[in-house]
Design a protein around this nucleic acid. Structure first.
Lengths: 93, 93
DNA sequence: CTATGAAGTCATCGTTCATTGACAAGGTGG
DNA sequence: CCACCTTGTCAATGAACGATGACTTCATAG
């Protein structure tokens, strides 16, 4: 499942926590954060610390994968020139 | 590639940025953060805001996937009871 | 050599984070 | 009914964040 925002993490966390039959307090204790924080995360609070999220997902046995979306655009074999870069060139802000 | 800590993101970001031929300043402008922040991230600073990392990865066309590691342990078909949960039960802190 | 750009680092500052402790609302079981 | 647990929420506090501007170092180009 792709992660576009904290809302995605929120859903996954809540679902998995219930799967494991844990209360927010249980989970908080295991992750080493406050129950209020768990609650905020599950509510989709956007600005949270990255490493805490990693610890949280780890305790839920969820993995975070970083993928470089395919150069499936290998239509023209020779020109592996970065299309991405060119596109970027014309995207502002 | 699995993300265990910010150091993993750091490596990916630096590599991808160079691939795209961007300077830290360029990237910072595109993500909407300070150059110092980009620099810190590439240095593996552990406590950074999650949503900023998401914006960063997005601008680099990198995707973050949340995966629930396989129930490849489907050896005994009937008992799909949560092994995870049981293991959790006996893991403290 | 000089100039320009990139990268690394620092101090300062205002903002936001996560924690703590407390309270209320909702459900469940005795 | 009451007791208990869970969840949601809040105010106050100290810690850490990210922005900014300045400075240094290093490399490359002119």
């Amino acid at each position: 499942m792709r992660v576009n925002a904290m809302r995605d993490v929120a859903a996954a966390v809540r679902g998995r926590r219930k799967e494991l039959g844990l209360s927010q307090a249980d989970l908080a204790r295991r992750v080493g954060v406050s129950r209020a924080w768990i609650n905020a995360v599950e509510a989709g609070k956007p600005r949270v610390e990255f490493d805490l999220v990693l610890r949280l997902l780890d305790r839920l046995h969820l993995r975070l994968d970083l993928v470089k979306p395919g150069n499936h655009g290998d239509v023209f074999k020779g020109r592996s020139v970065d299309l991405d870069a060119i596109l970027d060139e014309y995207r502002d802000q």
